[in-house]
Amino acid sequence: MPVFDLSQTPLRELNSALHNLGSGANDTAFEVVNPRGSHAVAVGIDSPITVEVRGSVGYYCAGMNDGGTVTVHGSAGPGVAENMMSGTVVIEGDASQYAGATGCGGLLVIKGNAASRCGISMKGIDIVVHGSIGHMSAFMGQSGHLVVLGDAGEALGDSLYEAKLFVRGTVKSLGADCIEKAMKPKHLEKLAELLEKAGVKDVKPEEFKRYGSARKLYNFNIDNADAY
């Protein structure tokens, strides 16, 4: 398995190696050691490879991932797995703000807590946070699922479109146009599937509440002007 020691090897060599896999390449499993908070680690992956990152990373780790499986054995800085298209990103520790921002697909699992703006502008990604999430999470979320086993901070789901939010703990406050919605069998089923994919055991879908868009901001109305 190729190992990249980021205390010795430039970032460019790592990302270049991850992008230029010939068809039928043998080495599809990579290891990164000593990331020491580096930015843009394992970004732009476009094939089904696996990357194990041993340590904590900076901004935009696994950004725009398309098909890869990236595991960070540490914490992640801002914008982890931003704009992910497909694949899986797992953070063993905590994630900073903007985790999974604008993600279009794939699964992001955060085993610790996520900071503010988790799932901001999400466009189809599924995010499962074992801990809690910070303020303004799922802001303008368009589609996909955000599952939170812990609590959510202020203004959850502000200006939400069609992303579906499931929170097991308390929600400090809901953002504009975000409301609690009934949990239907199809939601329980989806939730069970996501929990299983994210390696969550001993937690039942029935323990969550569902939040979604009230759709009151979908077409401009002067009486909602305070919410804009």
């Binding site: 460019r12 990302n15 270049s16 970004v43 732009g44 901004y59 935009y60 950004g63 921002a101 703006r117």
Partner: peptide, 23 residues
């Protein structure tokens, strides 16, 4: 932008875009 604010963050965002597109 949803995942950066200000020139110091922008520098890191540009790095990411360059890395994704191999400079």
């Amino acid at each position: 932008h949803p995942d950066w604010t200000g020139p110091d963050d922008l520098e890191i965002k540009i790095l990411e875009l360059r890395e994704i597109t191999d400079w």
